[in-house]
Nucleic acid binder design. Structure first.
Lengths: 159, 159
DNA sequence: TATTGTTATACTCTATAACTATA
DNA sequence: TATAGTTATAGAGTATAACAATA
């Protein structure tokens, strides 16, 4: 990985980003572990909430993940009664995905966990610094053409 | 993963960090791929440069990686003539690791790649913004007790 | 024939623990 | 007995492609 010893070089910023990003992802995974969810599960719950009735293929395309992986994750969530597969009468090949009441409730807990996770992660910054950081990161994310809300790690989803 | 749709909440910052961190790591891996190195290889090259003569166990402890993984990575680097295993005469169980001339040269290329990678990643920011970002990230990293130069991803080193 | 969802299989990666040599 | 390094092996995880149902 990049050298991190040469002050505020561009390489040092990139290394810090990679380091903190991994740390943030790992801490978030810990936060939702008690809910018996992985980040992948949480990502699917969130997307189905945003796009109710979406198909598994659409989900896979949006996440950049393999359809066969999405199947097993949706299996998990359905078996726990968090998500429903409804047959689309117009095209019976498709499964229209919907959150159940339990799924909506659990997603609320996931969002609460994400918020307290974020607060803990940025506790060293005052509100102005935090907004400043958000703006700078948003600037880079836009420039790098990252899709809002789509973590590249979704491409290797884990159960 | 965290919701990224609620403005500049703490959760949004955490999500952006995770997203950008993964992106930065992936881009860096692409940069050094032509050198036939993975980030894990690069990390070992760098640590051996910083602590010449260190043992493989010490390396594994510093990186938080399994000793058996370090073996295969050092094997790769040794076979390519980038690193030397010297027997420690005082304790013949230990291998003292040293970079060869070729290893030192390749590490220079890795550092150049890291620098241009960082420049590309932060091209949307002016120098002042970049320094600002570095300071904010450094602040969080220190608060979260991250070890400078040690990427948490080293713990699952890949060849 | 093409597409959705699913399942099966082969492959890779990882972790554990056994092994050797030295202490 | 304990530790460094190595190797072997079993388990988990992943990607590919085969498959059934529907269009």
């Amino acid at each position: 990985m990049a050298d991190s010893t040469d002050g505020h070089s561009a390489a040092a910023v990139a290394f810090l980003l990679a380091q903190l990003g991994e740390h943030a992802a790992a801490k978030f995974a810990e936060r939702i572990h008690p809910l018996q969810l992985t980040p992948a599960h949480a990502g699917i719950l969130r997307l189905v909430a945003v796009q109710p009735g979406c198909s598994q293929q659409a989900l896979a395309r949006t996440l950049g993940a393999l359809p066969s992986k999405v199947v097993t994750l949706v299996d998990d969530l359905q078996q726990r009664g968090l998500i429903e597969r409804r047959r689309n009468p117009d095209d019976r090949r498709l499964h229209a995905l919907h959150l159940t009441t339990a799924g909506t409730e659990l997603l609320r807990k996931v969002r609460a966990a994400a918020e307290s996770h974020g607060a803990d992660l940025t506790r060293a910054l005052d509100p102005q610094q935090r907004d400043n950081l958000a703006a700078l990161l948003g600037c880079i994310a836009a420039d790098q053409h990252l899709h809002p809300g789509i973590h590249p790690g979704y491409q290797r989803l884990r159960r």
